[in-house]
Design a protein around this nucleic acid. Structure first.
Length: 278
DNA sequence: ATGGCCATCGCGGATGGA
């Protein structure tokens, strides 16, 4: 199965591009961020006509996340339980897996707890604006809330994917100009500490499991011809739990839609798993 | 370089993004 995450910077503007991309890349699950619309405006019918059912968690003007999938999602949860937030940033759901106890009597499986399905969390991490700002403090609090919740979530759902726009780089390899960006937003030690604390819960950056093109980025500023000059950052990530790590068969960033007219500033990240949905 | 671009709200220009 294939999963993908894409910050589309307004679904109102980018819906045709998302549908075009899905037609060319019929992934099983697509996580979307920055819908910038309310739930009543979500284009369920357009996705359904493309063969996808959607769960959305939107708000007016800002933020907003969704999971759209070829098989229906179950056990949908919105935002981070235990962390009060007036912004729509997280949506989680389970996708039943082929080979679970209900439809396969074989005792051996490639995956422990396969009957618990695949838990997918799509997230739009706070931007943080600038170190020292109120928004940066909110980002740090949000990251602490995410980590505390994920610790228990991983016990409930051992087969877990956390993907989305993290708004954090792992290290200098994720930054086109590490010296110029040093201690700037997305690149501070505090943000990277939080990202590593997610790794410490037992998650793995799927992108780094494979040889990647040099200077692989997922976001490029709209200004200054940044995409053409490949002046970007890798801030969109797919993290997988320990049980899923051996089943990851590929992970890549698809730069193709960044070449569209009126593109999102982010590119999709695609994960391939040696698993099938039920 | 105190910036450039884009989306939203809404009809001018501020705010947020990253």
């Amino acid at each position: 199965m294939k999963l993908a995450t894409w910050n589309i910077n307004s679904l109102t503007v980018r819906l045709p591009q998302v549908l075009d991309w899905l037609a060319a890349n019929p992934v099983d699950v697509l996580a979307l961020q920055e819908l910038k619309l309310t739930d009543d405006k979500f284009p369920h019918t357009a996705f359904a006509q493309a063969g996808y059912s959607s769960q959305c968690f939107g708000q007016k003007t800002y933020n907003g996340v969704a999971l759209t999938s070829r098989t229906p999602a179950v056990a949908v949860v919105k935002n981070i339980p235990g962390f009060d937030d007036d912004m729509a940033r997280v949506i989680s759901a389970t996708f039943p897996l082929l080979g679970n106890a209900a439809n396969d009597s074989s005792k051996d499986s490639v995956l422990p707890n396969i009957n618990k399905g695949l838990r997918v969390i799509g997230a739009y991490f706070p931007n943080g604006q600038e170190p020292g700002s109120d928004k940066f403090e909110y980002k740090m609090a949000w990251l602490s809330g995410l980590r505390a919740w994920l610790r228990t979530e991983l016990q409930t759902y051992p087969n877990l994917v956390l993907m989305g726009d993290y708004n954090i780089t792992f290290d200098d390899a994720d930054v086109w100009d590490p010296e110029g960006m040093r201690d700037q937003i997305h690149c501070t030690d505090e943000e990277r500490y939080h990202l590593q604390s997610l790794i410490a819960l037992g998650l793995t950056d799927a992108h780094r499991l494979f040889a990647q093109p040099p200077k692989s980025y997922s976001w490029w500023d709209y200004r200054d011809m940044a995409f053409r000059r490949n002046r970007g950052m890798r801030i969109d990530h797919i993290l997988v739990s320990k049980t899923l790590k051996p089943l990851v068969s590929a992970c890549h960033i698809d730069k193709t839609p960044r070449k569209n007219e009126r593109p999102s500033d982010h590119a999709p990240v695609v994960l391939e798993l040696a698993l099938a949905t039920a």
